[in-house]
């Protein structure tokens, strides 16, 4: 699902002001660029937010997208994150069919992926999994065979990989 081949990740630091997300989204729409996923939340510094945008490179060259984005007055900094040199995380929650017959198998799958059961009902379970988007893709595929009732992913967030040493801790 993440189809990361033709995607690039932009980490965009913005002033946290009303309408900033609309400006970014509007720019993508107006210039015909495609957003694959988008996550936004306040950043480490007060008054700043970080937007992680996964862009579809078939729609436009990254350089042009970055330059147009940087023309937005509220955009302070844009870092292009190479997937090979960044750490990426995403959260998935899904409600899955898990009647008596399938329940054991679903639980096993959640255990293998180190996911969590966050709600239980007679015929369904709601599960969550945090991790690299590729791992979430696999998990989603496997869950699908039991029947996904509803699913929500957050879209990925990413930061640059740290230098040597610390990198060891950044495995998927």
């Amino acid at each position: 699902m993440s189809g990361s081949m033709n995607h690039h990740i932009l980490s965009v630091l913005v002033q946290n002001r009303p309408g900033v997300l609309a400006r970014v989204a509007g720019l993508f729409a107006r210039r015909g660029y495609n957003i694959f996923s988008l996550a936004v939340a306040p950043a480490e510094q007060e008054g700043r937010s970080r937007i992680t945008i996964v862009v579809d490179l078939d729609s436009a060259p990254l350089e042009q997208i970055t330059k147009q984005l940087f023309k937005l007055i509220d955009v302070i900094k844009i870092s292009e994150l190479d997937p090979r040199r960044s750490v990426e995380r995403e959260l998935l929650i899904a409600t899955v069919r898990a009647g008596t017959e399938a329940r054991g198998a679903v639980l096993e799958l959640v255990t293998i992926f180190e996911g969590k059961i966050i709600a239980v009902a007679d015929e369904v379970l709601t599960v969550s999994l945090e991790g690299h988007p590729d791992k979430l893709d696999d998990f989603e595929d496997l869950l699908d065979s039991y029947g996904i009732v509803e699913l929500q992913r957050t879209g990925r967030v990413a930061l640059p990989k740290l230098d040597r040493g610390a990198r060891l801790r950044a495995v998927n």
């Binding site: 309408g19 509007g26 007055i73």
Partner: peptide
């Protein structure tokens, strides 16, 4: 107004 004029101004502010 700021929504409508967002893509036809260099910047706008409410």
């Amino acid at each position: 107004t700021v929504g409508i004029t967002r893509s036809c101004t260099k910047h706008n502010e409410l």
